[in-house]
Design a binder for these strands. Sequence first.
DNA 1: GTGGTCTAGACCACC
DNA 2: GTGGTCTAGACCACA
Lengths: 129, 129, 129, 129
Amino acid sequence: MQFDNSPQAIYLQIVDYVCEKLLLKQWTIEDKIPSVREMAVKMEVNPNTVARAYDFLKQQSIIYDKRGIGYFISPEGLNNTISYRKQEFAEKELPGIFRTMYLLDVELDDLKTEFEKFKELYAKNQKLF
Amino acid sequence: MQFDNSPQAIYLQIVDYVCEKLLLKQWTIEDKIPSVREMAVKMEVNPNTVARAYDFLKQQSIIYDKRGIGYFISPEGLNNTISYRKQEFAEKELPGIFRTMYLLDVELDDLKTEFEKFKELYAKNQKLF
Amino acid sequence: MQFDNSPQAIYLQIVDYVCEKLLLKQWTIEDKIPSVREMAVKMEVNPNTVARAYDFLKQQSIIYDKRGIGYFISPEGLNNTISYRKQEFAEKELPGIFRTMYLLDVELDDLKTEFEKFKELYAKNQKLF
Amino acid sequence: MQFDNSPQAIYLQIVDYVCEKLLLKQWTIEDKIPSVREMAVKMEVNPNTVARAYDFLKQQSIIYDKRGIGYFISPEGLNNTISYRKQEFAEKELPGIFRTMYLLDVELDDLKTEFEKFKELYAKNQKLF
DNA sequence: GTGGTCTAGACCACC
DNA sequence: GTGGTCTAGACCACA
């Protein structure tokens, strides 16, 4: 995996990677996630960077640690992930989206049909994403 | 202006720059836009890159050229800009937005109040953006 | 300043140092606190360690940062400090205190007179502490 | 047992170890306590250090020695332990506790409910401590 | 093995 | 100058 030219900090990309796993139900409550060192090898980054990401996720109560054993998805992991990501979406993405929609005179209702189609398609083919 | 770490090709960023000027009504029909060389200096890029952007905009009938004089906003410039940008929005941005909303269980209706607030605020303070 | 033989992590000792300044009203709302590098020199530790402490305090909303300028005491800084320290006191100190009191058969009421005396004395001579 | 990073002198930690045994009723009047050499092995310290601790306890009339046989809990051992520890608590711990409580605006009455809960829990599970 | 902490030194963007 | 991020490599306590 490579992160080089992204504007997002690497440790936050690792945070998002874990969040995606949860949102896609690929990881669930009490699952052990890769150790700091494993993830560092997989992501080709310094272990410190992974540790920083995991520390961030721990503070969000998305994961917790058992010292000397590893990190695990916490019971409220999925809910906290959704909360965290909703806030990120509202603060970092929505303003840009709204601005574009405003300038192009697009209304939310104009997107309804397409969103419904998307949801249907996505639900069927989730494994492909 | 700097483009270094953006994922978007530089010439497309210049395309967007011109589109924004039109959407914000800062440039309008028959306005002369900066020459290729002027824009190249302003954007700190190679003139060839600007030429490529202007060529792209010409193909979209957003600008036209008078040989030896310069480039001008075409009569259908604003409409074509909106069409172009709507297509870009639908193809490049919407899928990601829909995916996020789906995973976070956010509905379009959940955004209505905020969008109205945004539009109100934006209309007032457009000069600031 | 030296931290070598304390069981507490250095970055948490720096956290406590800042908290004390707030609790003693030596630093107050909107005060600029020493820069990461200044504090690192003062405390004789690596700047990364100070950065970690400041990051912790930022997450507690005790301080906030202005990029390129420095860190400042946030408006809710004192309250959040008290909340944070109350929790630490309850979790880390109280159990040991209660155990000692239980084994020595000391009741809370037995301490009342002394606590009142302490408060009176402390309020007068706070500058000395 | 290890003492490395504790701020307390090692011989005083051994003193406290003996006191704890008495307070927890694990040792009682006329019990023979471990010999200096046994204790030195157990605590992984120099026998001189243990001797210093036992001498201190003898001066407090908590233990007494029968030449050539060993050290024993003295009849007033428990009471003297309590007296000794109460004084230590009042001189070494209370000031810090009072200072923290003062700065955090915590009153003794605020702790009553929790202390009662603690005592109840502790009385039940003493074997676990 | 695991996570937690710390140092040293580097580069970046922002002001 | 400021804070933010990242790497490299080290040592610790815990299990």
